[in-house]
Design a protein around this nucleic acid. Sequence first.
DNA 1: CTCCATGATTCTAA
DNA 2: TTAGAATCATGGAG
Length: 201
Amino acid sequence: MRPITPKEIERMVQIIHKKFSAIQMQLKQSTCEAVMILRSRFLDARRKRRNFSKQATEILNEYFYSHLSNPYPSEEAKEELARKCGITVSQVSNWFGNKRIRYKKNIAKAQEEANMYAAKKAAQGIAQYGMMPSPGVPGSMVSPSGEMYSMAVSAQQQGLHHMAAVQANAFSDLASAYNPNMMVSVTGAGYPSNPDASRTD
DNA sequence: CTCCATGATTCTAA
DNA sequence: TTAGAATCATGGAG
């Protein structure tokens, strides 16, 4: 029997090393897959969803409805809201994302009635305070406000397409401009004055 | 139990 | 990257 040469040994070591690497790779891959499956099954946050506190939703809704014309809080505003609500910034982002889309859907269904009243009230405010060039006699204010109101009505009667949402936004904008407390009767939760923090017009 | 509200995720498009 | 839309999964009211 001839002795094993160092060269042969080295060659065998290389082969073993290659095999080992292959096995290692395979193991890594399958472990990774298993981890991903477990993660999606047990760490999916949807499985541990908790509703926010009443106060938190109150704060978020208050912000949303007082910024209806532009419900996109800046990063700082989100941080502020997150702090006040005791939730994370991403939760605030999630909340606004959900809120915007679901608000629009509600508009499409039945809530444009509320905006109609908002428009009506805004129009009354305009007429009352003479903040709009009146088309007719300067003194009389019986009819001029009817213009926007009838727009809203016709939008409703013509069967609410997505157009209704656009108008609703416009009206809400007017409404909040002339009467910020219209949409929601604010209940407590008074924050430090931050009424118009993030206007990015 | 079912049904709806709601928070989170995923996918697509701009 | 972000917003919007669709969808998922849970909580809670009935």
